[in-house]
Design a protein around this nucleic acid. Structure first.
Length: 363
DNA sequence: GAAATTTGACCTAT
DNA sequence: ATAGGTCAAATTTC
């Protein structure tokens, strides 16, 4: 990657370029009288790029160096196992908070300290969604809270196997104010239960996973159907990996800002992206397939949906400071349990002549 | 009856 | 003092 630019600058450039490219595609698309779906897709991608860029700028004002360190220090850190850095003297206390063993406090109370990492994703269901789309984990809701300044309450979930297996993974789900079709989902803690330990997740218990209040044909995103789909998707990704030919495969990758979920409508979009794209964001994003439980299932009346998942950043587990900012977004189709993809699918065509390193570009 | 959800109360960080 | 996060009893669902 360009060494002359800072990490966030590269990220910002990439996002803006991506937005520009997609806008061009949209412009071209506007000449076509029939492709409404693809326009929606392109608009979504543009918005996603700008959103990422804004997030980066925000983070730049606060903890850029930390985030950069994170991204560089955790190239192999898997979403599924953010705590499992080899040899790292980390521990996770009973409430899921990760602590360096030197800074373990006496947490006599139940109240959680701010976790040292989280995985933040956004799920967009533009075309509507019925029913929960799952993230292959079993969650139990344990609370809901109205959040100041937010239109919608935040829901709190913990792993169903908390008691039986001592799994302290939690997640929070909150509907976006700006776009009610978007859910911000924050994962905290690591799954130590059997479902978290299995690379191939066990089938979900039928009583929980697919409450058949919604029956439709969401193909690849349906959490339950995702096992086969994920396998296929892995294969796709593997092809891309093999073709990438660069030495950065130890880095994480990102999925396109638009979704994987669009495959239903646009079966052509994913693979070409995967094959054409450079992995220029690969050192920025810890990416994973994602499908996420949307408990507020009634929000989405239409059977088709589209996920717009933003990848999460995992803080450097041994960082001494809390990093709770969520700085990057991404799209994919399953949650953290799919750990090891390290390349980008973003459909970006970078102009090789673009003067990224122009002095003063970011000054 | 067991498991999941709801919801008001409680706890703690800021 | 306040907001966010969690607990746990009550309620609902299966």
């Amino acid at each position: 990657m360009e060494s002359d630019l800072s990490w966030e600058q590269n990220t910002l450039i990439n996002e803006l370029i991506q937005g520009m490219e997609v806008a061009r595609k949209l412009k071209a698309d506007l000449r076509m009288p029939y492709s409404v779906d693809s326009r929606d897709l392109l608009v979504q991608r543009i918005l996603s790029s700008y959103e990422k860029a804004l997030l980066i700028l925000r983070c730049n004002a606060s903890s850029t160096s930390e985030l950069q360190a994170m991204s560089q220090a955790t190239p192999t850190l898997l979403p599924e196992s953010p705590l499992s850095v080899h040899g790292s003297p980390l521990r996770e206390d009973v409430d899921g908070t990760i602590k360096d063993h030197q800074e373990v406090k006496h947490d006599s109370k139940k109240r959680k300290a701010t976790p040292k990492w989280m995985d933040h994703v956004r799920v967009s269901c533009e075309s509507g969604l019925e029913g929960p789309h799952e993230d292959s984990y079993n969650w139990r809701k344990y609370g809901q809270k109205d959040i100041l300044g937010a239109k919608y309450p935040r829901s709190y979930y913990r792993c169903t196997f908390r008691n039986t297996q001592g799994c302290w993974a939690t997640k929070q789900v909150q509907r976006s104010d700006e776009d009610p079709t978007v859910f911000d989902i924050t994962y905290r803690g690591k799954h130590t239960c059997s479902q978290g330990n299995n690379a191939v997740l066990p089938p979900k218990s039928p009583e929980k996973q697919e409450k058949p209040t919604h029956s439709h044909n969401i193909d690849i995103h349906r959490a339950q159907a995702s096992q086969e789909s994920l396998t296929k998707f892995r294969n796709i990704l593997s092809v891309n990996t093999d073709n990438l030919n660069n030495g950065d495969m130890a880095y994480p990758f990102t999925f396109p800002s638009t979704s994987f979920g669009c495959m239903k409508q646009d079966n052509h979009s994913l693979i070409p992206w995967a094959l054409e794209n450079e992995s220029f964001l690969s050192d920025l994003y810890q990416t994973h397939l994602l499908s996420t439980t949307i408990p507020e299932s009634n929000y989405f009346p239409s059977p088709t949906f589209q996920m717009n998942v933003f990848d999460g950043i995992y803080s450097k587990p041994h960082s001494e400071s809390d990093i709770n900012e969520i700085i990057s977004t991404n799209t994919s189709a399953t949650n953290s349990p799919i750990p090891d993809f390290n390349f980008s699918l973003d459909p970006v065509e970078i102009d090789p002549n673009f003067p990224f390193n122009t002095p003063g570009l970011f000054s």
